[in-house]
Protein backbone atom coordinates (compact mmCIF):
# COMPACT_ATOMS: atom_id res chain seq x y z
CA UNK A 1 0.00 0.00 0.00
CA UNK A 2 2.78 2.36 0.91
CA UNK A 3 4.51 1.41 -2.29
CA UNK A 4 1.38 2.13 -4.28
CA UNK A 5 1.08 5.59 -2.77
CA UNK A 6 4.68 6.20 -3.70
CA UNK A 7 3.87 5.23 -7.28
CA UNK A 8 0.92 7.61 -7.30
CA UNK A 9 3.07 10.45 -6.05
CA UNK A 10 5.55 9.95 -8.87
CA UNK A 11 2.87 9.62 -11.53
CA UNK A 12 1.12 12.73 -10.31
CA UNK A 13 4.35 14.69 -10.41
CA UNK A 14 5.07 13.37 -13.90
CA UNK A 15 1.69 14.25 -15.31
CA UNK A 16 1.75 17.73 -13.84
CA UNK A 17 4.96 18.35 -15.77
CA UNK A 18 2.83 18.82 -18.87
CA UNK A 19 0.33 21.24 -17.47
CA UNK A 20 -1.35 22.45 -20.66
CA UNK A 21 -1.82 18.92 -21.91
CA UNK A 22 -3.07 17.82 -18.49
CA UNK A 23 -5.76 20.51 -18.42
CA UNK A 24 -6.83 19.88 -22.02
CA UNK A 25 -7.05 16.16 -21.36
CA UNK A 26 -9.16 16.69 -18.26
CA UNK A 27 -11.52 18.91 -20.23
CA UNK A 28 -11.59 16.40 -23.07
CA UNK A 29 -12.37 13.60 -20.65
CA UNK A 30 -15.23 15.71 -19.37
CA UNK A 31 -16.63 15.89 -22.89
CA UNK A 32 -16.49 12.19 -23.66
CA UNK A 33 -19.38 11.07 -21.45
CA UNK A 34 -21.05 14.43 -21.98
CA UNK A 35 -21.69 13.79 -25.67
CA UNK A 36 -22.78 10.25 -24.84
CA UNK A 37 -25.20 11.60 -22.32
CA UNK A 38 -26.38 14.28 -24.71
CA UNK A 39 -27.12 11.55 -27.28
CA UNK A 40 -29.26 9.72 -24.75
CA UNK A 41 -31.03 12.95 -23.87
CA UNK A 42 -31.85 13.66 -27.51
CA UNK A 43 -33.03 10.11 -28.11
CA UNK A 44 -35.44 10.44 -25.23
CA UNK A 45 -36.62 13.73 -26.68
CA UNK A 46 -37.57 11.79 -29.81
CA UNK A 47 -38.85 8.58 -28.29
CA UNK A 48 -40.03 9.54 -24.79
CA UNK A 49 -39.12 6.22 -23.14
CA UNK A 50 -37.25 2.97 -23.66
CA UNK A 51 -39.05 -0.24 -22.76
CA UNK A 52 -40.86 1.47 -19.94
CA UNK A 53 -37.88 3.29 -18.49
CA UNK A 54 -37.98 7.06 -18.25
CA UNK A 55 -35.14 9.40 -19.06
CA UNK A 56 -34.10 10.07 -15.46
CA UNK A 57 -34.16 6.39 -14.59
CA UNK A 58 -31.79 5.69 -17.44
CA UNK A 59 -29.73 8.71 -16.39
CA UNK A 60 -29.37 7.19 -12.93
CA UNK A 61 -28.19 3.94 -14.45
CA UNK A 62 -25.86 5.80 -16.82
CA UNK A 63 -24.29 7.85 -14.04
CA UNK A 64 -23.63 4.88 -11.74
CA UNK A 65 -22.02 2.91 -14.55
CA UNK A 66 -19.93 5.84 -15.75
CA UNK A 67 -18.84 6.81 -12.26
CA UNK A 68 -17.63 3.34 -11.47
CA UNK A 69 -16.01 3.10 -14.89
CA UNK A 70 -14.23 6.43 -14.42
CA UNK A 71 -12.91 5.50 -10.98
CA UNK A 72 -11.90 2.08 -12.17
CA UNK A 73 -10.08 3.41 -15.22
CA UNK A 74 -8.18 5.91 -13.06
CA UNK A 75 -6.74 3.11 -10.98
CA UNK A 76 -6.55 0.44 -13.64
CA UNK A 77 -4.98 2.56 -16.35
CA UNK A 78 -1.82 0.48 -16.01
CA UNK A 79 -3.80 -2.58 -17.06
CA UNK A 80 -5.73 -0.66 -19.68
CA UNK A 81 -2.51 0.44 -21.36
CA UNK A 82 -0.71 -2.78 -20.57
CA UNK A 83 -0.05 -3.63 -24.23
CA UNK A 84 2.48 -0.79 -24.33
CA UNK A 85 4.29 -2.27 -21.38
CA UNK A 86 4.51 -5.63 -23.12
CA UNK A 87 5.54 -4.24 -26.49
CA UNK A 88 8.36 -2.05 -25.18
CA UNK A 89 9.49 -4.82 -22.84
CA UNK A 90 8.75 -2.71 -19.78
CA UNK A 91 7.14 -5.80 -18.31
CA UNK A 92 10.54 -7.54 -18.21
CA UNK A 93 11.63 -4.70 -15.98
CA UNK A 94 8.78 -5.39 -13.59
CA UNK A 95 9.64 -9.08 -13.51
CA UNK A 96 13.14 -8.48 -12.25
CA UNK A 97 11.76 -6.74 -9.20
CA UNK A 98 10.85 -8.63 -6.07
CA UNK A 99 7.25 -7.47 -5.96
CA UNK A 100 3.90 -8.70 -7.05
CA UNK A 101 3.26 -7.89 -10.71
CA UNK A 102 -0.24 -6.60 -10.01
CA UNK A 103 0.90 -3.85 -7.67
CA UNK A 104 3.58 -2.87 -10.12
CA UNK A 105 1.26 -2.73 -13.11
CA UNK A 106 -1.25 -0.75 -11.07
CA UNK A 107 1.54 1.62 -10.19
CA UNK A 108 2.78 1.92 -13.73
CA UNK A 109 0.03 4.33 -14.65
CA UNK A 110 -2.73 6.34 -13.07
CA UNK A 111 -4.97 8.48 -15.18
CA UNK A 112 -5.62 11.61 -13.15
CA UNK A 113 -7.31 13.28 -16.11
CA UNK A 114 -10.16 10.77 -15.94
CA UNK A 115 -11.40 12.82 -13.01
CA UNK A 116 -13.03 14.91 -15.75
CA UNK A 117 -15.24 11.94 -16.52
CA UNK A 118 -16.01 11.39 -12.88
CA UNK A 119 -17.11 14.99 -12.42
CA UNK A 120 -19.41 14.82 -15.43
CA UNK A 121 -21.07 11.60 -14.35
CA UNK A 122 -21.43 12.79 -10.77
CA UNK A 123 -23.32 15.77 -12.10
CA UNK A 124 -25.62 13.47 -14.04
CA UNK A 125 -26.18 11.39 -10.90
CA UNK A 126 -27.22 14.42 -8.88
CA UNK A 127 -29.48 15.65 -11.64
CA UNK A 128 -31.12 12.27 -11.96
CA UNK A 129 -31.62 11.84 -8.21
CA UNK A 130 -33.24 15.27 -7.96
CA UNK A 131 -35.77 14.26 -10.59
CA UNK A 132 -36.74 10.79 -9.43
CA UNK A 133 -38.84 10.26 -6.36
CA UNK A 134 -37.23 7.47 -4.41
CA UNK A 135 -38.39 6.59 -0.91
CA UNK A 136 -34.99 6.85 0.69
CA UNK A 137 -33.94 4.80 3.65
CA UNK A 138 -30.64 3.59 5.01
CA UNK A 139 -30.79 0.43 2.88
CA UNK A 140 -31.28 2.36 -0.29
CA UNK A 141 -28.43 4.76 0.43
CA UNK A 142 -26.20 1.76 1.12
CA UNK A 143 -27.42 0.11 -2.08
CA UNK A 144 -26.40 3.15 -4.11
CA UNK A 145 -22.92 3.14 -2.61
CA UNK A 146 -22.56 -0.61 -3.05
CA UNK A 147 -23.59 -0.28 -6.69
CA UNK A 148 -20.63 1.99 -7.19
CA UNK A 149 -18.25 -0.31 -5.34
CA UNK A 150 -19.49 -3.39 -7.16
CA UNK A 151 -19.16 -1.56 -10.46
CA UNK A 152 -15.61 -0.48 -9.74
CA UNK A 153 -14.61 -4.06 -9.02
CA UNK A 154 -16.34 -5.50 -12.07
CA UNK A 155 -14.75 -2.99 -14.42
CA UNK A 156 -11.38 -3.53 -12.75
CA UNK A 157 -11.78 -7.24 -13.31
CA UNK A 158 -12.55 -6.60 -16.97
CA UNK A 159 -9.44 -4.44 -17.31
CA UNK A 160 -7.31 -7.19 -15.80
CA UNK A 161 -8.84 -9.73 -18.18
CA UNK A 162 -8.17 -7.41 -21.10
CA UNK A 163 -4.56 -6.93 -20.06
CA UNK A 164 -4.13 -10.69 -19.71
CA UNK A 165 -5.05 -11.01 -23.37
CA UNK A 166 -1.76 -9.23 -24.19
CA UNK A 167 0.08 -12.33 -23.02
CA UNK A 168 -1.58 -14.38 -25.73
CA UNK A 169 -1.59 -11.96 -28.64
CA UNK A 170 -0.31 -8.45 -29.12
CA UNK A 171 -2.44 -8.03 -32.22
CA UNK A 172 -5.94 -8.88 -31.15
CA UNK A 173 -6.00 -6.13 -28.60
CA UNK A 174 -8.94 -4.40 -30.17
CA UNK A 175 -11.01 -7.23 -28.73
CA UNK A 176 -10.41 -5.80 -25.31
CA UNK A 177 -12.54 -2.83 -26.26
CA UNK A 178 -15.52 -5.12 -26.65
CA UNK A 179 -15.18 -5.99 -23.01
CA UNK A 180 -14.15 -2.67 -21.50
CA UNK A 181 -15.98 -0.04 -23.52
CA UNK A 182 -18.58 -2.52 -24.72
CA UNK A 183 -19.74 -3.54 -21.28
CA UNK A 184 -19.80 0.09 -20.23
CA UNK A 185 -21.92 1.06 -23.24
CA UNK A 186 -24.30 -1.83 -22.78
CA UNK A 187 -24.76 -1.33 -19.07
CA UNK A 188 -25.49 2.36 -19.34
CA UNK A 189 -29.05 1.28 -20.17
CA UNK A 190 -30.96 -1.01 -17.79
CA UNK A 191 -30.30 -4.56 -18.96
CA UNK A 192 -33.97 -5.36 -19.38
CA UNK A 193 -34.09 -3.55 -22.71
CA UNK A 194 -31.86 -6.18 -24.32
CA UNK A 195 -32.45 -9.65 -25.70
CA UNK A 196 -32.28 -12.48 -23.20
CA UNK A 197 -28.87 -13.79 -24.24
CA UNK A 198 -27.33 -10.35 -23.71
CA UNK A 199 -29.10 -10.05 -20.38
CA UNK A 200 -27.92 -13.47 -19.28
CA UNK A 201 -24.36 -12.87 -20.40
CA UNK A 202 -24.15 -9.66 -18.43
CA UNK A 203 -25.72 -11.20 -15.38
CA UNK A 204 -24.07 -14.59 -15.09
CA UNK A 205 -20.75 -14.20 -16.94
CA UNK A 206 -19.86 -10.55 -16.49
CA UNK A 207 -22.17 -9.69 -13.62
CA UNK A 208 -22.97 -6.10 -14.55
CA UNK A 209 -26.65 -6.86 -14.05
CA UNK A 210 -26.13 -7.01 -10.33
CA UNK A 211 -25.05 -3.40 -10.20
CA UNK A 212 -27.28 -2.15 -12.95
CA UNK A 213 -30.63 -3.88 -13.23
CA UNK A 214 -31.45 -5.59 -9.94
CA UNK A 215 -30.57 -2.79 -7.50
CA UNK A 216 -32.10 -0.25 -9.85
CA UNK A 217 -35.45 -2.02 -9.63
CA UNK A 218 -35.08 -2.04 -5.87
CA UNK A 219 -34.19 1.65 -5.65
CA UNK A 220 -37.15 2.60 -7.80
CA UNK A 221 -39.43 0.45 -5.65
CA UNK A 222 -40.55 -1.79 -8.52
CA UNK A 223 -41.63 -5.09 -7.10
CA UNK A 224 -41.29 -6.67 -3.69
CA UNK A 225 -37.59 -6.76 -3.00
CA UNK A 226 -35.95 -7.83 0.23
CA UNK A 227 -34.03 -4.86 1.67
CA UNK A 228 -30.94 -6.65 2.88
CA UNK A 229 -30.59 -9.01 -0.06
CA UNK A 230 -31.03 -6.22 -2.56
CA UNK A 231 -28.58 -4.05 -0.71
CA UNK A 232 -25.92 -6.76 -0.72
CA UNK A 233 -26.38 -7.92 -4.31
CA UNK A 234 -24.04 -5.33 -5.86
CA UNK A 235 -21.23 -6.52 -3.62
CA UNK A 236 -21.14 -9.79 -5.56
CA UNK A 237 -19.20 -7.69 -8.06
CA UNK A 238 -16.21 -7.91 -5.75
CA UNK A 239 -16.14 -11.67 -6.21
CA UNK A 240 -15.86 -11.24 -9.97
CA UNK A 241 -12.30 -9.99 -9.67
CA UNK A 242 -11.03 -13.31 -8.24
CA UNK A 243 -11.21 -15.41 -11.43
CA UNK A 244 -9.79 -12.42 -13.30
CA UNK A 245 -6.74 -12.46 -11.07
CA UNK A 246 -6.29 -16.15 -11.79
CA UNK A 247 -6.40 -15.53 -15.52
CA UNK A 248 -3.74 -12.85 -15.01
CA UNK A 249 -1.54 -15.27 -13.11
CA UNK A 250 -1.91 -17.83 -15.85
CA UNK A 251 -1.02 -15.18 -18.42
CA UNK A 252 2.15 -14.23 -16.57
CA UNK A 253 3.30 -17.84 -16.48
CA UNK A 254 2.57 -18.11 -20.19
CA UNK A 255 4.66 -14.99 -20.79
CA UNK A 256 7.54 -16.44 -18.80
CA UNK A 257 7.72 -19.45 -21.05
CA UNK A 258 7.18 -17.68 -24.36
CA UNK A 259 9.20 -14.53 -23.95
CA UNK A 260 8.50 -11.49 -26.05
Amino acid sequence: MKLYLRYLEILFKSQLQYRASFILMTIGQFFVPLVMFASIYFLFEKFGQIEGWSFFEVALCFSIVHMSFAISVCFMRGFDSFSKLVVNAGFDRLLVRPRNTIVQVLGSNFEFTRLGRLIQSTMVLIWALLNISIEWNAFKVATLIFMLIGGIFIFSGIFILGASLCFFTVQGLELINIFTDGSREISQYPLSIYKDWVKNFFTFIVPLGIINYIPLMYLLGRGPYNDILSMLTPLIGIVFIIPCLYVWKFGVSKYLSAGS
Partner: peptide, 11 residues
Protein backbone atom coordinates in the same frame (compact mmCIF):
# COMPACT_ATOMS: atom_id res chain seq x y z
CA UNK B 1 1.09 18.34 -27.51
CA UNK B 2 -1.35 16.46 -29.67
CA UNK B 3 -3.32 14.40 -27.17
CA UNK B 4 -5.54 16.98 -25.53
CA UNK B 5 -6.57 18.93 -28.60
CA UNK B 6 -6.93 15.74 -30.58
CA UNK B 7 -9.25 14.26 -27.99
CA UNK B 8 -11.53 17.29 -27.98
CA UNK B 9 -11.50 17.46 -31.79
CA UNK B 10 -12.43 13.81 -32.15
CA UNK B 11 -15.11 13.75 -29.47
Amino acid sequence: SPIGSFLIFSV
